[in-house]
């Protein structure tokens, strides 16, 4: 078992990351569900909503923006502006746990990548009707086989869509915030202190790692030199015999 102090530092950093950053926002109560449709792979402009490896050039010759927002999302090792699903959606889900957020992925890259946001008309109050009345197993769920495309709006619902094809996740988030009227969440002073502590630990770790690496390198170097010297001595001995 990992030592609990270390484990808790890691967990704290992960949870802070899950709570705060791009996508941390509380949605207005009239939003009933969010549905994302995009392809399994990132080709043909599907890079915005989903994760993609650190490639510098897309097939259509478009260059990826430099990693400018890297300091806002430091724990992700990959460029953060291409993955709405992986970066923003968990935070949205954390702050709005009751809203179903489904991701429907499919194999056909040529289809559009859209986000559908379902709004309830203000006068009709929320009650379990239609889709939500079904048992969980029969409700639409996230899928990798395109089983559940965005359903048509129910009675008293309207749908707002965002086209995500060929758009970076920052742009998607900006449009999402504008269209939903969500209120962004900012860390409390306590959490800011915690975030600073996490950052300090990370810096400290980097320094320690560098020192350790130098020490190890020195040791290995010396060992190599010794081995070389021993080999030479052996060779001389053999020559003398």
């Amino acid at each position: 078992m990992v030592n609990p102090g270390k484990r808790m530092h890691i967990l704290k950093a992960k949870l802070l990351d899950l709570r705060h950053g791009p996508g941390a926002a509380i949605l207005p109560p009239e939003i009933t569900r969010i549905h994302l449709d995009f392809a399994l792979r990132w080709n043909d402009g599907h890079y915005g909503p989903r994760y993609a490896g650190a490639l510098t050039l897309f097939p259509n010759g478009e260059e990826v923006c430099p990693i400018s927002t890297a300091d806002t999302v430091p724990s992700f090792p990959f460029p953060p502006h291409r993955k709405f699903w992986k970066i923003c959606l968990p935070r949205l889900k954390y702050w709005n746990p009751a809203i179903p957020m489904l991701v429907n992925r499919f194999a056909d890259q040529s289809l559009p990548a859209t986000m559908s946001i379902y709004f309830r008309k203000a006068e009709e109050e929320a009650e379990a009707t239609g889709r939500n009345a079904l048992p969980l197993a029969q409700q639409p769920h996230s899928s990798t086989e395109g089983e559940h495309p965005a359903p048509p709006p129910e009675k008293g619902e309207r749908v707002v869509t965002i086209d995500m094809k060929g758009v970076h996740s920052d742009a998607i988030l900006a449009e999402f915030m504008r269209k939903t009227g969500a209120t962004a969440i900012h860390p409390t002073p306590d959490e800011e202190v915690e975030m600073r502590q996490v950052e300090e630990l990370r810096e400290r770790g980097a320094v320690d790692r560098a020192i350790m690496k130098q020490w190890l390198d020195n040791k290995r170097n010396q060992e190599r030199m010794m081995a070389l010297a021993r080999q030479e001595a052996e060779a001389i001995k053999m020559a003398n015999q």
Binding site: P4, M8, L11, L15, L18, L36, W85, L89, P90, R91, L92, K93, Y94, P97, M101, L102, V103, H141, S142, S143, T144
Partner: peptide, 22 residues
């Protein structure tokens, strides 16, 4: 202090697993 209630843990885990096929 390093322990969580079930609903808290579930809230985080559901956020971490959002969009994955159940």
């Amino acid at each position: 202090e390093e322990q969580y209630s079930l609903c808290d843990a579930m809230r985080y885990l559901r956020a971490a697993e959002v969009g994955r096929p159940p």
